[in-house]
Structures are given as structure tokens and as C-alpha cells.
């Protein structure tokens, strides 16, 4: 066994070479397919309650950069971040936090981003208020105490960007007929997704949750235009005086004595849908 057979080793026939190459390519191809399917299956299933650290790039970019070293976890002063364990539905070894358990405290110096050696957490994030870890959404609004007309307001109070990321929008309380309802309303352009609101919600199961942007936000079709925005941009109506025939709206019954008076909001007085 110790003695080698140089003649056999050093001279590779074309047939052997092609055979070995074919075996290798097929084997490697099969292995690559298997690995690829593992990757594809794992990368698409980030659960909605697993929030990436601040500055995390979009999930596809994140997985091209994150080496799962845990340096962000080590440098998080509040133990917010952890690495996903095997068997969890998050890609094993990648950092995340669950806001209901420990939310992000939004450190001014963002130590997790500073610690990241790979660019998975984007160093261009220098102001934590610009972070977009997710968007808080009042998903359980029917259970929200404020929705019942109570003044819980806890999510609003704990929000690091109070009156910016969460405001209380007033509407009439139809149940009592004389009180107001203050509905916690999240403004996605300001919300960082820190999850303080989710953590603080007093319900057994939180009514307000931080969700990844892809789940939390709707998106208008690119061809849609808001008429009032376009009008504002132009400074005047886009259709007035262009000879466009305005057909009568359904339910509009013109008074016999000519046109109705226009209201200040642009509609017609006496309009009944």
C-alpha cells in the first residue's frame, strides 16, 4: 500500500480524464443543487416577528454579507440582539431581535453597526433616528384600549419619536356619543421599528407590532397620481378650462334653478351620495 504506482498515477488517459471530469461535474452539480435549495428555502422565510438590527441591508443583500460572527450581538449593551439558533425559522446564526421581549434602545452611537465587519449592517446609518428596522403597525386595533375610547396611550408615550412616529388621531366615540377616541397612528416615514411600543403594550398579546417593511407597507401602483398633489405641483387645476366634459356624478340631482354652489372643499353643496 505504501508503494506507489507512478506509471498509473502520472499518466491519465483521455478517457479517464473525461470520465473523472464528468463524475466531478455531475456530483458537484447535484451537491450545488442541494445546497442551493437549502439556501433558497432558508432565505425566504424570515418570520415577521424577527427584526434585523439597525442598518441591516435588505434581506437578500444581508445574506450576501453577514458571516454570522455575532459581533453586533456582543456589542449590543442591552442584550437586545441574539443569533438565531439552529432549528429556528430564521437563517441559523444571523442576528435578530424580538421586540416584545427586548426592544432596540436606539443607542446614539449605534454600537452594533460599528461592530459589523462585513457591511451587512450599513455603516452609512449614523443617525439612529433614520433606522428602518421595521414599521410598527396597530395590527390588533380592535383590542387596543384607545380604540375602546380609553386613554392608555402607552405606545405613544414610550415612542422615542413621540408625536412624530406615533401620533394620537382624534375621532368621535360613536358608542358614547359624546367622547373622543384617540387612535395611535404610526407614521412610517418616521418610525424606526425599534419596537418600544410593541414591548410596552399593556395587552396580554400586543396590539401594536413591528413588522418588516415588506409586510407592513402597502404600495401604490406606479401609474397612480394623487390629483391634489398634481394640482399642488402645477399650482392650478389640470383639467379646468380644457374643454373636458364633466359628466354628472351618480346621485347628483341638480336643482332646477341652475348650478349648485361650490363648497370650499371643492365639492358641490347639497351633494347627496
Amino acid at each position: 500500500m505504501a508503494e506507489k504506482t507512478p506509471n498509473k498515477k502520472n499518466k491519465v488517459s483521455r478517457r479517464d480524464f473525461l470520465g473523472d471530469a464528468a463524475k466531478g461535474v455531475c456530483g458537484a452539480g447535484l451537491f450545488g443543487l442541494a445546497l442551493g435549495s437549502v439556501v433558497a428555502e432558508a432565505e425566504g422565510k424570515l418570520p415577521a416577528d424577527a427584526i434585523r438590527p439597525p442598518g441591516a441591508t435588505a434581506e437578500a443583500d444581508f445574506l450576501s454579507a453577514c458571516v454570522r460572527c455575532g459581533l453586533c450581538v456582543r456589542d449590543c449593551p442591552y442584550d437586545t440582539l441574539s443569533l438565531a439558533d439552529m432549528g429556528s425559522s430564521v437563517v441559523s446564526g444571523t442576528p435578530l431581535f424580538v421586540a416584545r421581549t427586548i426592544p432596540c434602545e436606539m443607542c446614539d452611537d449605534i454600537p452594533c453597526v460599528v461592530a459589523c465587519p462585513t457591511g451587512a449592517l450599513d455603516k452609512s446609518l449614523t443617525n439612529i433616528d433614520d433606522a428602518k428596522m421595521g414599521i410598527a403597525v396597530l395590527v390588533g386595533h380592535e383590542t387596543c384600549l384607545n380604540f375602546q375610547g380609553l386613554r392608555c396611550d402607552v405606545c405613544y408615550r414610550v415612542c422615542p419619536l413621540i408625536e412624530e412616529a406615533i401620533t394620537l388621531e382624534r375621532s368621535a366615540n360613536e358608542r358614547t356619543g359624546k367622547h373622543a377616541i384617540f387612535i395611535p397612528t404610526v407614521h412610517s416615514d418616521k418610525c424606526t421599528g425599534c419596537g418600544k411600543c410593541e414591548h410596552a403594550c399593556v395587552l396580554e398579546k400586543t396590539a401594536i407590532r413591528v413588522l418588516p417593511e415588506r409586510i407592513a407597507l402597502g404600495e401604490l401602483g406606479a401609474h397612480y397620481r394623487w390629483g391634489w398633489v398634481e394640482k399642488g405641483n402645477k399650482g392650478e387645476s389640470l383639467i379646468e378650462g380644457q374643454g373636458i366634459i364633466d359628466l354628472p356624478d351618480r346621485g347628483y340631482n341638480p336643482e332646477p334653478s341652475g348650478f349648485p354652489e361650490k363648497s370650499a372643499t371643492g365639492g358641490y353643496k347639497g351633494f347627496k351620495p
Partner: peptide, 20 residues
């Protein structure tokens, strides 16, 4: 061959494939 397949898979999936 495994190593080669890892690089190809990384390139095609845009991920650090072997770390999965």
C-alpha cells in the same frame, strides 16, 4: 468539487452559501 460548487452556488443565489 464541493468547494467549486459552493462558490457557484454563492454566486447564483447571492448568498454566502456554505454558511447555511
Amino acid at each position: 468539487w464541493t468547494m467549486g460548487a459552493v462558490f457557484v452556488t454563492s454566486a447564483l443565489t447571492g448568498t454566502i452559501a456554505w454558511e447555511f
